[in-house]
Amino acid sequence: MIRGKIAIAVFALMAFAQWVVPGSMILQHERTLTQGEEWKFRCQLLDPYDPFRGRYVMIDVSAGGVDTEGMDLPWSEKVYVSLERDDEGYAKYGAVSTEQPADGAYLLAQVYGSQVVFPLNRFYMQEDIAPEAERVYFDATRSEELRAYVTVRILDGHAVLEQLYIDDTPVADYVRAQGS
């Protein structure tokens, strides 16, 4: 067991690191949310569960497709996907490259075979609302064309998912309105 002055030093260092790591995570995300450019991604919803972080709605923003054909990338390779806006103002995927684009907005993604996985796959929700959200979305998509999209802030390739909208309403409000 470490004792005396060394113990004080080690404890102080450890306590400091334990604050700095979450603190810097908060700062980085806050910076992107306040300074980042806003993008809208069309998405699909699924509802899983994380034992540590709670309920979230699993989101798939890869619809519309990213073209990696003929690139023959190694498993779990990191790629830069540049972003464009379509006629309705939603994000659309452009060129895929293993090198950082010189200009324009881009997302960092990982390639697993023919699948491209974006770091925008979770939207955390209050535990009673998440399964409801998926049900409401599922019911609605069967009867009519219902738009779900997420707003994402992107700053220098760092993307933070801001809000999930169903029919232009934040998802929690939408579910509550449906329930009442």
């Binding site: 080690v10 334990q18 979450p22 995570m25 995300h29 709670g54 974006f118 979770r122 955390y124």
Partner: peptide
């Protein structure tokens, strides 16, 4: 770390989450 992940919708990367957790607790 988990609460921050939840607040900012950090993508699920259990590897990075676990490794950070272990290293910060090691001392």
């Amino acid at each position: 770390i988990a609460l921050i992940g939840q607040t900012y919708n950090v993508p699920g990367d259990p590897q990075a989450f676990l490794l950070t957790w272990i290293v910060l607790g090691m001392p």
